[in-house]
Amino acid sequence: MPSNNPALASFVESAPPGELLDVTKAIKSILADDPSALQSLTPAFEKYNEEQFATVKLPGGSEEVIVSPHNSLGDGRYYDVASQSSFAFDHATQKASAVQSYVLESSRLDLIKSLLKSLSLHTTEHYPKSSLGVYPIENDSKIAILTVASKYSPNNFWNGRWRSLYIFSPGNGSLAGSLKVDVHYYEDGNVRLLTDKPVSVSLPSSANASEVAKQIAIAERKYQEDLNKAFGSLSEGAFKALRRQLPITRQKIEWEKISGYRLGQDIGGGRSR
């Protein structure tokens, strides 16, 4: 059921990485802690967490697991293959509870476990910290491969998240997905980077988990290199073009004397009338 307050729902769904709880706090102040109004935003919280591949540490667990549409059991419960467990997830507080044993039943279980093993080597090597999920989808005909890596530095006014999603079809060897980067920098303003890079690779129908992991590693390394090049071009070109290094007078403003400047003539370089 959609929220009866589309404006507040849009705030939730567009929250930057690592800042959902801050957005929720602000919404509560607007709603004056009205429980029914906040409850109406539950679909927006669920949509946000599933689309962002929210991660949560299970009670008693040491690793964070993923929340997504691909490992949803319905009624607010999700499962994790590696820990062989299922759990309830509160989308508003981003907390997990009611952990239970869960054994995945799939005809592709061996391939899924092999993919987890091969891909964990890749993520350990290339990400400081990440969570990985591999799930059977579409009646066991395909496999969803998810990686999410988040890094939050609110003391330095930035937060960021990398998400990758691949759909692997063992029957024909197709591997298609997207790479998404979301970074928010908010010191003395707001700057946000949002990217979405499609990926498509054809593998032999006999491709094993190691070959799939190799293609994913190649795609992600290439995208990171492209981003690095783009940042270099921006810093040397577009960013510098956004504003002058100096005023029209070609001299730095002496701010302690600002009250004595004649705006049109001294700062703007114009001629007094």
Rank of each mutant, 00 (worst) to 15 (best):
M1E: 11
N4S: 13
N5C: 09
P6Q: 03
P6H: 02
A7R: 12
A7I: 13
A9T: 01
F11P: 00
V12Y: 02
E13S: 10
E19V: 02
V23Y: 06
T24H: 10
T24K: 12
A26C: 04
K28H: 11
K28S: 11
S29H: 10
I30M: 12
L31M: 09
A32P: 00
D33E: 13
A37R: 13
A37Q: 15
A37E: 12
L38F: 10
S40P: 00
T42H: 11
P43L: 05
F45E: 02
E46S: 13
E46K: 15
N49V: 02
N49C: 15
N49T: 07
Q52Y: 06
T55R: 13
K57F: 02
P59F: 07
E64C: 05
E64H: 10
V65M: 08
S68F: 04
P69G: 05
H70L: 10
N71M: 08
S72M: 06
D80G: 08
V81S: 10
S83V: 04
Q84Y: 03
S85E: 09
S85V: 12
F87Q: 01
F87A: 01
D90Y: 01
D90G: 04
H91K: 03
A92R: 15
K95I: 08
K95V: 11
A96Q: 01
S106K: 11
R108D: 12
R108Y: 02
L109T: 03
D110E: 15
D110G: 04
I112L: 15
S114R: 12
S114Q: 15
L116M: 14
S118W: 00
L119H: 02
S120Y: 01
T123W: 01
E125G: 03
S130H: 04
S131P: 01
G133T: 01
V134R: 00
Y135E: 08
E138C: 06
N139G: 14
D140M: 10
K142A: 15
I143D: 05
L146K: 01
L146Y: 01
Y152L: 15
S153T: 07
P154L: 02
N155Q: 14
N155G: 13
N159R: 07
G160C: 08
R161M: 11
W162V: 09
Y166V: 02
I167R: 12
I167V: 15
S169M: 06
P170C: 09
G173R: 02
L175Y: 03
K180S: 12
V183F: 06
V183C: 04
H184R: 06
Y185M: 10
Y185V: 07
Y186H: 14
L193E: 05
L194I: 11
L194Y: 04
T195Y: 01
K197Q: 13
P198G: 08
P204A: 14
S205R: 11
A207S: 11
A207D: 01
A209T: 06
S210W: 01
V212R: 08
A213K: 00
A217D: 09
E220A: 07
K222L: 11
L227S: 03
A230W: 10
F231A: 11
S233I: 04
S233P: 00
L234G: 05
A238L: 12
K240H: 03
K240D: 04
R243Y: 09
R244Y: 06
L246K: 14
L246V: 07
P247W: 06
I248R: 14
T249D: 03
K252N: 09
K252S: 11
W255M: 08
E256M: 03
K257G: 00
I258T: 03
S259K: 13
G260H: 08
L263P: 00
